[in-house]
Amino acid sequence: MTDFFRIAWLIVKKDLTVEIRSLELVLTTVFFAALCVLVFAFAFVEEGRALDHAAGGILWIAIAFSGTLALGRTFERERQAETLRALLLAPADRPALYVGKLLGVILLMLLVQVLIVPLVGLFFQAPIFRHPGLLGALLLTGTIGYAAVGTLFAAMLVRARSRDVMLPILLYPIAVPVIIAGVRGTAAIFQATPDEPMARFWITLLLFFDVVFVTLALWTFEPLMTE
């Protein structure tokens, strides 16, 4: 078991080192997410005021879109010098490799959110500091669920043809509960009279989603990754 987490941490550390040197993923993903928010602002702001409930939806769409981009790039990087083959060739536990990649993706997505949450607050007058704990929990559980499914799909699509378009095609139908829970939960926090029990309900649902899909991914990673 300690070996499992040692391997996972090794992968995370390696990915972080690579990312700190190049900053490619962080910069491009953050910029893309900010653009998403902006584009939606043009669609949903009328006469200087945002439509009701628009903020939560825009936030989560930006998270989902930029997440897809980050997932694709993360695994493209492992494909360039076929390093993914080298990882699979090592005698390490395959699910540990999955957990390592997953943690890296989660970290990246959270970093993006650190920037776009204030941006949404700024552009749409969303009260982002009203319930920081609830909002944080919502973002964290949502990100874990989204990344858990996305990391598995992106990893198994590494060898597939037309993987760029296949990733969103496969990921979005499965991620629908995450989007609904995220958007509704955020709306419950942002609305004029906040509805805390509602937000908690959505966080609980996301927690269940995370548990089920992380388990399922750990269980299927090995058979899915052998050619």
Binding site: V149, L152, F153, M156, L157, R159, A160, R161, S162, M166, L170, P173, I174, V176, P177, I180, A181, R184, F201, W202, L205, F208, F209, V212, F213, L216, T220, P223, L224, E227
Partner: peptide
């Protein structure tokens, strides 16, 4: 999906299956 898509499809179907209750509950609320 090209070669190997039978396996990937199996993963997708499995995840889609597990997703049904989540979609139902979330849309229900």
């Amino acid at each position: 999906g090209g070669p190997g898509s039978d396996k990937l499809g199996a993963g997708m179907a499995l995840f889609g299956m597990a997703n049904v209750p989540f979609i139902y509950v979330s849309v229900n609320y």
